[in-house]
Write a protein that binds this DNA or RNA. Structure first.
Length: 711
DNA sequence: GAGCACTGC
């Protein structure tokens, strides 16, 4: 969510302030730094880093670990030999805001000694010694530089969140550290030959030394210091994974939060939440309320019910304002949660788990937590994503209640019994256990790790999930029968896309419609392009009509992109770039298009256009030959085909699963005989989304290894 | 007739 960065206003202290203000602020920052809990243990921490190549730091919220530790490391000389300190974050916003803060604390302009790098944005320079980045970005860097040779220290922050990127990165870093230490000792280390994956990378590095690098200059790397930072109290998993690595604890600083439970189980969560909200509003002292709900629909209905009940209250008790926030809400509406409430008013923020970690709202003193979350699970056998409402983990409940104690002592109301809390799982299932792995497998293979099944993950993914992703990579031509990466596979791994989309670009270059496919793939890679608020359903439907193609959603998305781009280019001829961007956002609003999603698609488009040009693919256009483009869609997405059944439902050809076309699709009513699709999600029904009409005969011609003449 | 949250040289 790129536009989220806009939330994090950082005051430019050095431009618009007098010298006096500047020094006053500098002094204040110094004081704040000294007061952080981590400041008391600076020397001891640095000794720990010096004595341990891998260190686990458990730091509670408010300890200052993310901003301070890199500065300490710099000060204590861990950047000598020209190495730099890299700190990974699971989210872009965090990387940006923390880098800004640390640059300010260090008194340097952002992008020089302190910088950050995220996709589409690199604010670093040759002087950069402290580099904040997303974990996904460091994984990408590893494809170009398998030793991560420019880093002397890598800090993996928020490791407890266990995102798929973090988990893969941990496995990779463990290998890199071993390989670099071996390059110094110059001896073959035999004590970890049980680690298959480690062996793979060593072999590859051996080959490189014989091949790519000249034998006589076999490079020696300096040691890599690894620091894993986690906010969960349980450091054991990380410590064990890194061979019994030392773990240290740093105190946090937060205001106390009183936890309340219900006396009996609640059957109606929405009603319980409403009662609690009004109880707080009428009986408790000042402070805003944060309510965790499962999704847009629930948020909208709670908002309506609050307004209904407010009307029944006396005038003096009506000073309560509601603010919804969820990811698909346009950013200007999201921003409203940050506006201070007018005097005498109390804010209620109705949020999904976006407010758990991604967005921090000041002024919250009360948290209402029904203990539920809508979570994604993945069925590797069927290739189906499911969105189901499940109970939170203990760690999640703790994270939620912590949101009440940032500005002062707070209260958290858990809408379940205390005995129920005890039964919750300790932490949420790591992402790697519940998502499609084809991208992970492709990337590991591109890094020379062929035996993915036996890769030393901190937690092994489901075996069938790995095997199935290998199978689909084989069908895409990325992996050979010997289970090695093919030339096509190497090309695919260079692209920052879902492997199916990477392959589509390669196929399209052969079909002569790469220009169009680049747009399709960019549009398919972002969250929903269309924005349909409940109260303006009719208008948004009409807006969609002007772009809709009877052939399907892919061509519709292409039409939207082309129309937007035409509007933008014409605008740019008479306006400044900035003005044209602004007008484009207005155009989006008028056409019920989510401008954040479109901006994201345009960014991805320009990035992958650069990529395919570098790869030497020919970017030719099929102009208006949409038949050619649809044949190319069939040749690219042949793994996801469904056929209409006599009863009007669809049967997915490869899995046999029965599905329906999602109501948001332009083909929802048309119901063509044979379709390709890109997404299969199970909510109340199994739905396919991003659907196009194709001819079954094309599949026999273009994917003969899977499709034959029907009886 | 319907969309948890993140993220990518």
């Amino acid at each position: 969510m790129p536009s989220m960065a806009a939330y994090n206003f950082s005051r430019n202290t050095q431009q618009h302030q007098s010298k006096g203000d500047f020094f006053a602020r500098k002094q204040k920052i110094e004081q704040q730094r000294k007061n952080l809990p981590i400041a008391e243990v600076e020397r001891r921490l640095m000794e720990e880093v010096r004595n341990n190549d891998t260190l686990i730091i458990v730091g509670e919220t408010g300890s200052g670990k993310t901003t301070q530790l890199p500065q300490y490391l710099f000060k204590w000389g861990f950047c000598h030999d020209g190495g730099i300190i890299g700190i990974t974050q699971p989210r872009r916003v965090a990387a940006i805001t923390v880098a800004k803060r640390v640059a300010e604390e260090s008194g340097v302009p952002l992008g020089q000694r302190v910088g950050y790098a995220i996709r589409f944005e690199d604010v670093t320079s040759v002087q950069t010694k402290i580099k904040y980045m997303t974990d996904g970005l460091l994984l990408r860097e590893a494809l170009l530089d398998p030793y991560l040779s420019k880093y002397s220290v890598i800090i993996v922050d928020e490791a407890h969140e266990r995102t798929i990127h973090t988990d893969v990165l941990l496995g990779l870093l463990k290998n890199v550290q071993k390989a670099r230490s071996k390059s110094i000792n110059g001896v073959v280390n035999t004590d970890h030959n049980n680690s298959n994956a480690g062996h793979d990378l060593e072999e590859r590095i051996g080959n490189q030394n014989d091949g790519i690098l000249k034998p006589c200059q076999a490079k020696k790397y300096n040691l890599l210091k690894l620091i894993i930072m986690s906010a969960s109290l349980d450091a054991r998993v990380f410590s064990e994974y890194f061979g019994g690595a030392r773990a240290v604890h740093v105190q946090g600083r937060q205001f106390p939060v009183d936890i309340f439970y219900t006396h009996k189980p609640e059957t109606d969560c929405i009603d319980a939440a409403l009662i609690t909200i009004f109880q707080i509003h009428l009986e408790e002292g000042p402070g805003d309320i944060l309510v965790f709900l499962t999704g847009q629909e629930e948020i909208e209905s709670v908002e309506r019910l609050i307004h209904e009940r407010l009307r029944q209250l006396p005038e003096s008790s009506r000073k309560l304002l509601t603010f919804p926030i969820f990811s698909s809400l346009p950013s200007e509406k999201q921003m409203k949660v940050f506006m201070p409430s007018p005097p005498g008013y109390r804010k209620v923020i109705l949020a999904t788990n976006i407010a758990e970690t991604s967005v921090t709202i000041p002024g919250i003193r009360y948290v209402v937590d029904p203990g539920l979350v809508k979570a994604r699970t993945y069925d590797p056998k069927m290739g189906v994503d499911s969105l189901i409402i499940v109970t939170t983990s203990k760690a999640q409940a703790l994270q939620r209640s912590g949101r009440a104690g940032r500005d002062g002592p707070g209260k958290c109301y858990r809408l379940y019994q205390e005995s129920f809390f005890e039964k919750l799982t300790d932490s949420t299932l790591p992402e790697i256990k519940r998502c499609d792995l084809s991208n992970v497998v492709l990337q590991l293979k591109a890094l020379g790790i062929d035996d993915v099944v036996n890769f030393d993950f901190i937690e092994k993914p489901d075996r069938t999930a790995v095997v199935n992703s290998l199978w689909s990579l084989y069908l895409l031509g990325a992996v050979t029968e010997e289970n090695k990466l093919s030339d096509v596979g190497h090309q695919m791994a260079r692209l920052p896309l879902d492997p199916v989309y990477s392959k589509a670009l390669i196929v399209a270059s052969q079909f002569g419609c790469l220009k169009e496919m680049l747009i399709c793939v960019a549009m398919l890679s972002v969250e929903s392009i269309f924005y349909a608020p409940r109260e303006k359903l009719e208008e948004s439907r009409n807006a969609l009509k002007s772009f809709a193609s009877p052939e399907g959603d892919h061509l519709t998305l292409l039409n939207v992109y082309r129309a937007a781009d035409e509007f933008f280019q014409k605008n740019k001829m008479v306006n400044s770039e900035e003005r044209a961007e602004k007008n484009l956002r207005k155009w989006c609003k008028d056409n019920y298009i989510n401008s954040r999603s479109l901006k994201h698609a345009r960014d991805i488009h320009s990035q992958i256009l650069r990529n395919v040009e570098q790869m030497g693919l020919r970017v030719t256009s099929c102009e208006d030959d949409m038949l050619l483009l649809r044949r190319c869609l069939a040749a690219s997405f042949f793994l996801k085909v469904a056929m209409k059944q006599p009863d009007g439902a669809y049967r997915v050809t490869l899995s046999g699963l029965m599905v329906q076309i999602h109501p948001s699709s332009v083909l929802f009513r048309a119901k063509p005989e044979c379709i390709v699709f890109n997404e299969l999600v199970r909510t109340n029904h199994s739905y396919v989304r991003n659907v196009s009409r194709i001819d079954y005969l094309w599949l026999i011609e273009l994917a003969p290894h899977l499709y034959a003449v029907q009886d």
